[in-house]
């Protein structure tokens, strides 16, 4: 690789780095994101921009993720949400079920009933992102979501 190409790749890298900093430094005014204990390390991956982060709900990181405990040492009791590398299924479900009753979930959307106690909520729902991917889905996006798991039968 020539010197010129190297220089270009370094420049591009620098621009990308600046852009990413720029994106994260857009401070969110929400109360939940001023939790310095968590934000010291999780400023980039921990910003809470979704519905659950609104001030009126008075939620903190620990409301869902549990008390800090030994974290960041491992093992710890922090609840991690997700399909693949999340905490135990029961642990994840218990957190959401503190507020969301199964009956109401089932009434709102039938798919809650058939996935009950089989899939963590975070398999479909994303709470940190400013937009909830499950809201206002087109029929096509919805069927694609089913296909992600229910294929090759």
């Amino acid at each position: 690789m020539s010197k010129r190409q190297w220089l270009w790749s370094i420049r591009l890298g620098a621009i990308a780095l600046l852009l990413s900093f720029g994106a994260t430094s857009a401070e969110s005014a929400l109360q939940i994101n001023s939790d310095t204990t968590c934000m010291k390390c999780h400023k980039r991956n921990g910003q809470m921009l979704g519905h659950h982060g609104q001030d009126a709900m008075k939620m903190t990181c620990s409301t869902c993720h549990g008390e800090k405990g030994d974290h960041p040492k491992k093992p710890n009791d922090i609840v991690v949400f997700g399909m693949k590398d999340g905490s135990e299924l029961d642990t994840q479900l218990a957190v959401c079920h503190k507020c969301h009753t199964q009956r109401k979930l089932g009434e709102t959307e039938w798919t809650h009933n058939v996935h009950a106690q089989k899939v963590p909520c975070a398999a479909c729902h994303k709470l940190h992102s400013p937009t909830e991917p499950m809201a206002d889905m087109t029929p096509k996006v919805r069927s694609e979501l089913c296909r992600n798991c229910h294929s090759g039968q």
Binding site: Q102, G106, W110, N113, V114, A116, Q117, K118
Partner: peptide, 14 residues
């Protein structure tokens, strides 16, 4: 056409 749910929580089905 969808009918249900049948069965008891958490094993409901349609």
């Amino acid at each position: 056409e969808q009918t249900g749910p049948f069965g008891e929580y958490p094993n409901e089905y349609y």
